[in-house]
């Protein structure tokens, strides 16, 4: 008999600390499944961000490190260059990657580091209490944009993937969304491809931006949050393969 929802071995059998309807749990599962399907668990090192997913290692059963806010791509560089046979992935939120770690991701891409980057974009700072992220959309109300983000005051949402796709050292960029079953499938395909490239030794960085719901700080029920990704977020962050 075929079990439909078998837990992949690299995903630990424990409840997560994430809010109901949060995208992190799904993204973790997808990462774990890809690792198992590619049979790379025993040579994979994961890098946790500072943000809601800081306890990544409590859920994904591979060697893991927790690093300073935004520095994951630099840490990953140090690991991969000294251990070319290992598979290194970073898992970063929008505050981590697009704000404080903008320099590190840009330069890791610029150097063409052989890394897999999972970039979770939920347009907000979750862990610190719902403040504005660089990816917060215009009009979006957050703890630090109480009147809604305006271009004049806070600038436009930062389209990191578009920027990264411009760099010759970046070989694959795809933006997907956890906005339903189809979106989840596409996300998994993208994540898997980003790992495959590293496994094959392709020369350059692979980045998957995942639009992911944060019902808690979007202040909406999970179903509405998925809807908001479809109707609002994808307007600023269009889905699809940007490079590779």
């Amino acid at each position: 008999m075929k079990t439909v929802f078998a837990r992949t071995p690299s995903l630990k059998d424990c409840p997560t600390h994430y809010c109901p309807g949060c995208g992190h749990g799904i993204a973790h599962r997808l990462v774990a499944e890809c690792i198992d399907e590619l049979d790379i668990r025993e040579r994979t090192i994961g890098i946790a961000p500072v943000g809601c997913a800081v306890l990544l290692y409590d859920y994904i059963d591979v060697d893991c490190i927790e690093v300073a806010h935004g520095r994951a791509p630099a840490v990953a560089t140090g690991m991969k260059r000294t251990n070319p046979e290992k598979i290194i992935f970073s898992y970063q939120g929008d505050g981590d990657l697009a704000s404080i770690g903008a320099a590190e991701i840009l330069h890791a891409g610029h150097r063409g580091e052989q890394l897999t980057v999972i970039f979770i974009n939920n347009a907000i700072f979750g862990m610190t209490g719902g403040q504005m992220a660089p990816t917060t959309t215009l009009g979006q109300v957050t703890a630090t944009t109480p009147r809604g983000r305006t271009a004049a005051e806070q600038g436009y949402p930062l389209q990191v993937s578009e920027i990264m796709a411009l760099l010759p050292g970046v070989i694959y960029v795809e933006r997907t969304a956890l906005d339903g079953a189809a979106g989840v499938r596409k996300t998994k395909k993208a994540i898997k491809h980003a790992f495959e490239l590293q496994v094959e030794g392709a020369e350059g960085l692979a980045l998957v931006e995942v639009l992911s719901p944060c019902p808690t700080y979007w202040r909406m029920p999970p179903a509405k949050a998925t809807e908001w990704i479809k109707t609002e977020m994808t307007k600023v962050f269009p889905l699809g393969r940007l490079k590779g």
Binding site: I45, I65, V67, A68, R71, A74, V75, A76, T77, G78, M79, R81, T82, N83, K86, A103, E104, L106, H107, H110
Partner: peptide, 17 residues
């Protein structure tokens, strides 16, 4: 590296392995 922040972070990564 692109900065001293990155340099020490690269050290962190290599040391961890």
């Amino acid at each position: 590296s692109e900065s001293e922040l990155a340099a020490i972070s690269m050290v962190f990564g290599a040391a961890a392995t």
